[in-house]
Amino acid sequence: MKDKSGFKKAWPIILLTIVVVISVSGLRYIDSITRSKIEAQQEQKIESMLSGMFPKMTQYDYDAEDDIYTIKTDGKKIGYAFIATGQGYGGDIDILVGLEDETTIKSISIISQKETPGLGTRITESPFIDNFNGLKINDAQLSRDDGKVDAITGSTISSRAVVDAVRTTALEKVKLLNSQKEGS
């Protein structure tokens, strides 16, 4: 009798545990079968974005260690690209940044974001994105912080997240590129 009531008390916890264990293993399985497909798609998307950014691109090299794409036309370097991640209002914002050379941004495009629809999502659209075309890396700050990028009204957090991620990551990557040059 005593045993039975003990079991009755524990039953909700046991059942919840069972349900959680089953769903976690189910999710692991689904994740394992979809992961490669999702990654392939991401890669394809980046490739098409790169060729949109550098229309003359014929090939690109990816340096996995530094996470930098080197863009080439018939073996000649015409630029670099890398992915910057900013902390937006609704989560991570992944940005593909193209560099013309070590000081100038060619253009940027947003790979993925989870900002507020209609407000923060405007970071993916033309007037904001165009701010970065041909911008010096050091000018990649909001106008109110003495930079040359106009924030989107009502979406300062999203705008600042993009600008800061682009600038800080670009400076890091340029440092890596310079040290590569000295090394070789």
Binding site: I30, T34, K37, I38, Q41
Partner: peptide
Amino acid sequence: TVVNLLFHAN
């Protein structure tokens, strides 16, 4: 989450 992953992949 399953639907999310399947949609993302397919």
